[in-house]
């Protein structure tokens, strides 16, 4: 989703103004805000007085849920006059604003776009929501201890995918539009232009955040994984894995789904539900055969998809280094460690 170049000077947004502005925005568009702390942090529809998130790093639940919900009805079906009738889901392409997502989450949406907006099979529901969405990001001033965005091409103050980026300064936010759409949106809210020292302060915030990030050896991982499908490294890598989907369901770039029909006599609905390559059921054939028999094949799939297959098609890994999987894995099977182990892989 490429957008026009925009070079707009920053504006200053006072902390005390924020709620008034959000209430105003909520009157014009569907507004989702980052709210809650710790394991409860998520994006929820705005309501007056909703506590905006302050904590470090990304929200526990991702912004992908707004565009690619856990469950989505694709169409309903019923019988009328002895014939089947389909009623497709309405495309929701009304104005939509997401407030407070981290640059990693915005970047993750850019990685989902080629999957759902493939020219041959565009997904109208995903595309509809994306079409008019304005993403207002909050630069990461304090990354989580599990974050590693700079190792996979991201940045705590990265602009990719965002229309407006906010940087938290001591007593205000510096807001800068990064797309024409963002500029137009920001202009409509009417703020005072930022003094030059605010830009410098914002740069310092980003630099501090960058320094706090650990480096993970993900460079050249795609090439190292080429032809390593049968490598013995996979035999041990998965052993601690419990086979749950905490990592995939909270990953901002994981996008696998299952299609199921639900319903009763004469009517029903076709649903698209999240699915995870970590489940045995994911590849279970109707015959009972399962080509990914054990945790080994499933974990290999997850790693290969992110760091080999996706880069093969899109030129970069399907990982934004948000660190969620690292933070939430019940057994602390750390993706950063997996990447480091794969670095040592030889032919």
């Amino acid at each position: 989703m490429r957008r026009g170049e925009a070079a707009v000077a920053g504006v200053i947004l006072e902390h005390s103004e924020l709620n008034r502005i959000l209430a105003h925005v909520a009157g014009q568009a569907r507004l989702w805000v980052a709210t809650g702390e710790g394991e409860e942090a998520a994006f929820l529809p705005y309501r007056p007085g909703i506590p905006l998130r302050r904590g470090p790093g990304p929200t526990r639940r991702t912004a992908k849920e707004i565009f690619f919900p856990r469950t989505e009805a694709l169409f309903t079906f019923h019988e009328a006059d002895g014939k089947p009738r389909l009623e497709p889901a309405k495309v929701d392409d009304g104005p939509l604003v997401v407030f407070g997502l981290r640059p990693c989450d915005a970047r993750a949406l850019c990685l989902l776009d080629p999957v759902f907006e493939d020219p041959l099979w565009p997904d109208r529901l995903y595309g509809g929501r994306r079409a008019r969405a304005i993403l207002v990001g909050m630069a990461c001033s304090q990354p989580s201890r599990a974050c590693f965005c700079t190792s996979v091409g991201g940045d705590p103050a990265g602009e990719e995918g965002l229309d407006v980026i906010l940087v938290a300064l001591d007593d205000a936010y510096l807001a800068r539009a990064t797309t024409d759409r963002g500029a137009e949106w920001l202009e409509g809210l009417g703020f005072s232009p930022a003094p030059p020292e605010a830009e410098a302060a914002a740069a310092r915030v980003a630099e501090t955040a960058r320094r706090a990030l650990a480096a993970v050896p993900a460079d050249g991982l795609k090439e190292r994984l080429d032809g390593r499908f049968e490598h013995p490294v996979w035999d041990r890598l998965h052993e601690r894995c419990l086979g749950c989907a905490a990592c995939t369901y909270l990953c901002p770039t994981c996008h696998c789904f299952d299609i199921v029909d639900e319903g009763g006599p004469g009517e029903g609905v076709r649903l698209r539900n999240w699915d995870s390559c970590m489940f045995a059921l994911f590849t279970l054939h109707a015959s009972g055969h399962n080509p990914r028999m054990t945790g080994k094949e499933r974990m290999r799939q997850r790693i290969m998809h992110k760091f080999n297959y996706y880069p093969e098609r899109q030129g970069r890994p399907a990982c934004v280094g948000c660190g969620r999987c690292v933070e939430i894995c019940p057994v602390n099977l750390d993706l950063r460690q997996v990447i480091a182990e794969l670095e040592g892989v030889e032919a």
Binding site: R61, R70, A245, A246, T248, Y249
Partner: peptide, 8 residues
């Protein structure tokens, strides 16, 4: 979110 971490 039905990730089944509890079960696993």
């Amino acid at each position: 979110i039905r990730c089944y971490a509890c079960r696993q």
